[in-house]
């Protein structure tokens, strides 16, 4: 299989599962597929910096979480009918998905800009630890800040609305998520193929040489980092709509680790890789989890084997070639 066919196979499989769920009258399968699509989208965001840019961020839960809190807080205020802000401008809540997505994207981008400015001055292990530490700081903040439920989290009861569609219907919501995912992947695909993507790839491989031809390595990496944060935040907003609930657990460092696992299981620097990775993870969780309470033990072992012996991940395996990145 060529990479292109492997990607198409993943996309079709992701569509087929909820269809099968509808035919077999198992709406749960639709929910699972929706979850895969959303977690995969978070992975697509991370993949942009990790796979294409070579920046190992262990703090993407922060963007996932901030997107989630944007959705939760805006919907909460819409439900309660009180404004989010009175000063300096009057700002009300909303249950419009479009508005929520935009706010989530902007918030994720701004947070990534802030964290990126500090952490991208470093590289390697510093970068890993600093992204982790900042995510952890926000995690502790959301736990202890009482206004939006703290550790308890914030329920929103109903999904937000989009063009008058019935978003509570599992299939409708899945199709919304799938459409957003396709758009995101197309955009990422354009970005990595454009001149910017080439510059990003060059920066990953040899920063000094790039700098000598006049491209600012820092600026290229920062732009990629901001885009990545925005995509992961969008996934976070959708995740909250899926569960009708947001809580600090979205921000825990295990979430950061899991998003990274999706990218690796699927295959680094492959557009649909994170979706394949998330699908495998959710599949293992469901199958192993039904067999043993200690399923995480086996997932851990499997992950070690994949990293040591199957570095291309699922997509690399399916397309019979290894990813060009380690």
């Amino acid at each position: 299989m060529t990479p292109r066919i492997a990607s198409a196979a993943v996309a079709l499989l992701l569509l087929a599962v909820p269809l099968a769920g509808t035919v077999m009258d198992e709406p749960w399968l639709i929910t699972l597929a929706t979850r895969v699509a959303i977690l995969g989208m978070a992975g697509v965001g991370l993949n942009l910096v990790l796979g294409y840019g070579g920046m190992v961020s262990l703090g993407h839960a922060a963007y996932f979480g901030i997107g989630g809190y944007v959705a939760g807080v805006l919907a909460h205020h819409a439900l309660e009918g009180d404004p989010v802000l009175l000063w300096p401008v009057m700002l009300g809540g909303t249950d419009s998905m479009i508005v929520i997505w935009l706010v989530a994207i902007v918030s994720g981008a701004l947070l990534a800009l802030l964290i990126g400015c500090l952490s991208l001055r470093t590289s390697g292990v510093y970068f890993i630890m600093i992204t982790l530490a900042f995510a952890q700081m926000i995690y502790y903040f959301t736990i202890s800040w009482p206004a939006y439920g703290g550790e308890d989290g914030l329920p929103i009861y109903l999904r937000n609305s989009l063009f008058g569609l019935d978003t509570m219907d599992p299939m409708t919501f899945f199709l919304i998520v799938f459409a957003v995912l396709v758009v995101v992947i197309c955009l990422v695909s354009m970005v990595v193929r454009a001149r910017f993507g080439l510059a990003l790839n060059a920066v990953r491989q040899n920063e000094t040489r790039v700098r000598s031809v006049g491209i600012g390595g820092f600026r290229v990496r920062l732009v990629a980092f901001v885009m990545s944060g925005a995509i992961t935040a969008l996934a976070g907003a959708l995740f909250v709509d899926l569960n009708r609930f947001v809580s600090p657990s979205m921000l825990s460092w295990h979430t950061s680790g899991e998003i990274m696992v999706f990218v690796i299981l699927g295959g680094v620097a492959r557009l649909w890789g994170p979706i394949a990775g998330a699908a495998l993870y959710v599949f293992l969780e469901q199958v192993l989890g039904s067999m043993t309470d200690h399923w995480q033990f086996w997932v851990g072992l499997l992950l070690i084997v994949v990293v040591l012996h199957a570095r291309g991940g699922i997509m690399g395996f399916a397309s019979g070639q290894r990813s060009d990145d380690g």
Binding site: W28, T31, G149, P170, S249
Partner: peptide, 29 residues
């Protein structure tokens, strides 16, 4: 102990397992 997992299981039990009664949750959140 993850709220989002609990929500998904509840969805599954309601949508696919057709349970009548739910119970078992330990944590307030």
């Amino acid at each position: 102990r993850k709220p989002e997992i609990a929500v998904q299981i509840a969805d599954k039990m309601v949508q696919s397992d057709n349970v009548d009664v739910l119970t078992g949750i330990i944590w307030s959140n």
